[in-house]
Amino acid sequence: MTANKFLSRYFLIFATYCFSCIYAYADNHGGTFGLHFSNGKETGNSDIMQRYTLTWSFNKKWLESNRGYLTGRWEFSHTRWQLYLQEDNTGWALNPVFRYVLPAKNVYYFFDAGIGVIKLAHRGFEQRDLGSEWLFEDKLSAGVGFGERFELALSWVHYSNANLASVNDGASMFAVNYALTF
């Protein structure tokens, strides 16, 4: 078993163990810590993406009003792409993500935006050259939270080297996200 496959398989088990006994910060929609699971596909292609993310909140609120507030969190994720024309690719990312929360009765709505960095196993992505193994990961998502523990969202994630390398084919993914928060 390769190191990437080992890390991919045991990441979720380790994360669940680490965060299973943490008490929730009750006033924070989306919890203090979370486990996010994403399944998606590349735009214009049929490559499958799976993303496993640990999140931890900034535990701060800005721009509070009677409609909502701005908050944020850190995301540490492992992403795996099942590619058809070449060996699968994997990556580890760290992103600060800002979230605008709109609380409602028994649910809350949210919009996320963030830009971070990702380190890929190799820079090739099907027949495209991403130009580097180090890329920027841009993320936009919108979703709904149910109660204090569960979220469902749709996201768009874009990978690019921002023209810092001579080649920058880039890749974009659409995904459905499921989250369990603590």
Rank of each mutant, 00 (worst) to 15 (best):
E64N: 03
N66A: 00
R67Y: 14
R67N: 11
G68T: 01
T71H: 00
R73G: 03
W74N: 13
F76T: 13
F76L: 15
S77V: 08
H78S: 12
H78W: 14
T79D: 10
T79E: 06
T79I: 04
T79W: 07
R80E: 08
W81S: 08
W81D: 07
L83R: 06
L83M: 14
Y84I: 08
Y84V: 05
L85V: 06
Q86E: 13
Q86T: 12
Q86I: 14
Q86V: 07
D88K: 06
D88W: 06
N89P: 10
N89S: 08
T90Y: 15
W92Q: 15
A93M: 03
L94T: 10
L94K: 03
N95D: 13
P96Q: 01
F98G: 12
F98R: 02
R99N: 09
R99Y: 07
Y100L: 01
P103T: 01
A104D: 15
A104P: 13
N106H: 15
N106G: 11
Y108S: 04
Y108L: 03
Y109F: 12
D112R: 01
G114S: 05
I115R: 03
G116H: 10
V117N: 15
I118K: 15
K119T: 09
L120G: 09
A121L: 10
H122D: 10
R123F: 00
G124I: 08
F125M: 13
F125V: 10
F125P: 08
F125S: 14
E126N: 07
E126M: 11
Q127G: 05
